[in-house]
């Protein structure tokens, strides 16, 4: 059985229950935070989405480099899918963040380093998707997109240092700069890790589906070109 078929058969059965377990952990295992109250539970979704989005953008860079190197369409398809799903999760981050911030900071948005950094990354990969959507669909555009995917990831260190010159209020997730942990209760950590793993499965599954759709579309286009 090929890896592709294994994914097809088993991933929904892994990702679905994993999400249910994650919900169980978020609402029933993790205790309610003392100061922030119930709103703090959005944090598990928020941080897991952020990690998943980073994995997505990393995948774009790696598969883009592989595509430039080998010229195989398979890598290009994965890069495109990972960018789409990465933007999806990055959007979750940008949606859940303000919902929390509205209650805790009293404002929807602040030009804090982390928020700014996430927004810059989001615009970066949205523009990648724009190129894919409206640039046309030939080998040239695929190569440009791959170059953009690599340029994007190269920019991340600079984005991180450049936004530091903005004043920051974002809380630390696991570690603060002084070395204290952000999450004290082990049940909170458990909920975070379970949610992160569940999101990872959902991410892999969605990328897999999207890649398959792209492959079918490419096959259709090739058939269309051949037979008129």
């Amino acid at each position: 059985m090929r890896a592709r078929d294994v994914f097809d058969r088993w991933l929904p059965w892994v990702a679905g229950p994993a999400m249910l377990i994650a919900l169980y952990c978020i609402f029933l295992v993790a205790p309610t935070e003392k100061d922030q109250g119930i709103i703090q539970r959005i944090f598990y979704v928020h941080v897991s989405s952020a990690w998943t989005a980073f994995i997505g953008f990393g995948t774009v860079a790696v598969t883009s480099a592989l595509y430039l190197w080998t010229g195989r369409d398979r890598y290009d398809r994965v890069a495109r899918s990972a960018a789409e799903i990465g933007v999806l999760f990055c959007t979750f981050v940008l949606l859940t963040g303000p919902i929390w911030a509205r209650h805790i900071w009293g404002t929807w948005w602040q030009w804090d380093p982390r928020l700014t950094q996430t927004l810059i990354l989001w615009t970066l990969y949205v523009s990648y998707l724009m190129l894919r959507a409206f640039g046309g669909d030939d080998d040239l555009v695929r190569r440009w997109a791959a170059v953009l995917g690599i340029f994007g990831v190269l920019g991340i260190p600079i984005i991180i240092v450049s936004v530091r010159i903005l004043p920051g209020i974002h809380p630390a997730v696991l570690m603060t700069r002084e070395g204290n942990t952000g999450l004290v209760d082990p049940r909170m950590r458990l909920a975070l890790y379970v949610t992160a793993v569940a999101f990872l499965f959902v991410f892999i599954w969605l990328v897999h589906l999207r890649t398959r759709l792209q492959r079918l579309a490419d096959t259709m286009a090739a058939m269309h070109a051949e037979h008129g």
Partner: peptide, 29 residues
């Protein structure tokens, strides 16, 4: 790099700033 690409896309007037601005945001700061 991206002007070389954008001038050959269909919607080139919009495409260049679209591709380049996100990359340039840290530089702007």
């Amino acid at each position: 790099v991206f002007a070389a690409a954008a001038v050959r896309t269909r919607s080139r007037e919009v495409m260049l700033p679209l591709l380049v601005l996100p990359l340039l945001l840290p530089l702007v700061i």
